[in-house]
């Protein structure tokens, strides 16, 4: 028995969610007293693969196949099940991102493995059963899920566990997978890379703005703050609906759920549907001219004031802080 962690590189580099997933897998493996394997599909340098070892992976497998260049969840799931079987893994860890959300349920159906999508903590183990915490009701509650199946899949929410670097060293090896052309039922016509430098789903800091900004022409100061802090930008739903900002920035119950370390809400009232998607953030700052805005009840730090006065001053203060550091 062993633990298998599926990780992904972006442009040949691993990012924090991958290191978190390896750390998580290593902790689960330590609890079970078994080995941990990591799997990566695609073109990644040897050194980069080895870096996964620093977070506790024992063996790192990579799959090379030109046909796997583009993402197809059905085929990727087939690759992962073959590696799962070759490495004799009973516990699979993935990242709860766009690709993880597509692959994990297919694996669950294929392997008859219980799936917890969006785990936020390590499992509690008793006998063969795991109990895993996950956010439900769009972050308004947490559920403790029991996994009854022999094989188990956990898709980890980003920012739930801190990556721990160790002295551990891993071996890197290619693994042979059997795929036939008939497995590739899906034709990828085009791939467009996200234009923003920092992806909203993985961002540690999110600067978010709402209808209080009055119009799209005023977003310069929001982007400036994001630039200074190395943050991603987000918005409330009405702002995306009236096309002030792209749909991909819409957070909340019917948009993206984010869990950054810091969420700065500017000119957003804090409707229950908005809070649902952001209240997993560790620290929330609210800037709103209405002292009665519901968002203040959910916030850690608040400023009552006009965004057009507060934000430029705050940007200067952030800049000064960054240059002093």
């Amino acid at each position: 028995m062993s633990v298998l962690v599926y990780v992904e590189a972006t442009d040949g580099k691993f990012k924090k969610p991958s290191f978190e997933a390896i750390t998580y897998g290593a902790k689960v493996a330590a609890m079970l007293n078994v080995e941990i394997h990591a799997l990566c599909i695609g073109e990644v340098s040897d050194d980069e693969l080895k870096s996964l070892g620093n977070y506790g992976a024992n063996k790192i497998w990579f799959v090379k196949d030109e046909r796997l260049k583009n993402f197809d969840p059905l085929v990727y799931a087939k690759v992962i099940t073959q590696v799962e079987s070759q490495t004799n893994s009973d516990v699979l860890v993935l990242i709860q991102n766009f690709n993880g959300k597509a692959i994990a349920p297919i694996l669950s159906a294929r392997l008859k493995a219980g799936l917890i999508s969006g785990a936020v903590d390590l499992p509690l183990m008793s006998g063969d059963s795991f109990t895993v915490k996950k956010n439900v009701f769009s972050g308004k509650a947490i559920a403790n899920y029991e996994m009854h199946s022999a094989k188990k899949i956990i898709a980890l929410t980003s920012n739930s566990i801190a990556p721990v670097a160790t002295e551990n060293k891993a071996t890197v090896q290619e693994i042979k997978i059997e795929l036939t052309d008939a497995d590739f039922k899906l034709k990828v016509k085009e791939v467009v890379k996200a234009s923003c430098k920092i992806s909203l789903a993985d961002a540690e800091i999110v600067v978010s703005a709402g209808r209080g900004m009055k119009g799209p022409e005023n977003w310069g100061m929001i982007e400036e703050m994001a630039n200074i802090l190395g943050a991603a930008t987000a918005c409330s739903r009405p702002v995306a609906d009236i096309n002030w900002r792209p749909h991909g920035e819409h957070v909340g119950q019917t948009g993206l759920t984010v869990r950054p370390n810091l969420y700065i809400a500017i000119g957003i009232s804090g409707a229950i549907q908005h809070l649902a998607g952001v209240n997993g953030s560790k620290v929330m700052v609210v800037i709103n001219k209405d002292a009665e805005a519901p968002f203040f009840k959910a916030a850690d730090y608040g400023i009552v004031g006009d965004v057009f006065e507060v934000v430029p001053k705050l940007n200067e203060a952030f800049k000064k802080f960054k240059s002093g550091n």
């Binding site: 799936l115 917890i116 509650a141 899920y145 996994m147 916030a299 850690d300 400023i303 009552v304």
Partner: peptide, 24 residues
């Protein structure tokens, strides 16, 4: 394959610390 054992509500925030608008 899975079942919910029980639920929890998130821990309430300690309260919002207010900062004056001219003291960013």
């Amino acid at each position: 394959l899975t079942s919910v054992k029980n639920y929890e509500l998130p821990i309430e925030k300690a309260g919002c610390k207010m900062i004056a608008a001219d003291n960013v």
